[in-house]
Design a binder for these strands. Structure first.
Lengths: 147, 147
DNA sequence: CCCTAATAATTGATAGATCAATTATTGACA
DNA sequence: TGTCAATAATTGATCTATCAATTATTAGGG
């Protein structure tokens, strides 16, 4: 097989697209006075989706280290956006939820974030988006543990 | 517009695919005794491609901070994989190149890295790969500075 | 030409991420 | 039921990334 050019490599392009999207989004969020990081926002959205989940689940969904989740949750807790309640039936884990302030914060800033998402896929057809999402998921499956 | 599910968001899937690919690749590289990080490898490949370039160009191609490039290059220099030569016609910038050891290192480990790339796109047709790459580039264009 | 602005690289400060080890708790099974 | 392994979360150590400020050098306009 011939040696491929860097620019043709999917993982290379994924990494660059990811970096550029984060840099751009963070800049816009900073400018709008949204005082959290892109990754913190993602965490809030995951919590919102599941309504209530453990830190381990949060680490799994976000593909981040549990230690990192602990520290990020402290930050989000200090900002008043999340609550951690001990579970009555399992004292090892916490139930992580959005606070009222957290829900309001997400609601308030959702429009800007949506516009960033839209911008990232500007010019894409529904068909393309479906295929793209599908292929990204397949890559994740290919890169799951095993062998 | 209806609120979208997290799983349908392209940027969310890109971030996850990127993380999973890096975690998987790093694990394999560690296991194979390739004593550098995935990001360091990417830098080596960029240098290899351009044969000779400045740190600023390296930062631009890799979408990383120049400060980070400085420090990573020190590491790669300590390992003996890169050389930085002052330019005769411009004393502000260095010419960054692969050393002989660097070239040998890339050559020696290319097979493993290629297998990782292949694994990530296992089951993809050439047509799909072309479209995927194209869409990832378009996202980068959408997320480039401006407005 | 000179002076100021722009550029390349570096450094210090700080924040965030991962790994390994630790603590507390739960589960399993002999 | 008592012991040992597994699990959830945390902490400390270490590494890497970014930002802002600094140094050295180059370029451009009056």
């Amino acid at each position: 097989m011939k040696e491929q050019d860097l620019e043709d490599l999917i993982l290379f392009q994924i990494d660059r697209a990811n970096k550029m999207a984060k840099i751009y989004s963070q800049r816009k969020m900073d400018k709008a006075g949204i005082d959290i990081t892109v990754d913190q926002w993602v965490l809030l959205k995951i919590i919102e989706k599941w309504e209530e989940l453990s830190q381990r689940e949060l680490a799994e969904h976000s593909k981040r280290d549990p230690a990192s989740i602990t520290r990020t949750l402290h930050i989000l807790q200090q900002k008043g956006f999340v609550n951690r309640e001990p579970l009555p039936d399992n004292r090892r884990q916490y139930s992580v939820k959005l606070s009222q302030a957290g829900k309001a914060f997400v609601k308030k800033n959702m429009a800007l974030v949506t516009s960033l998402r839209q911008k990232s896929i500007n010019g894409f057809s529904d068909e393309e988006l479906h295929q793209l999402r599908d292929m990204l998921v397949r890559i994740q499956e290919n890169m799951s543990e095993g062998d």
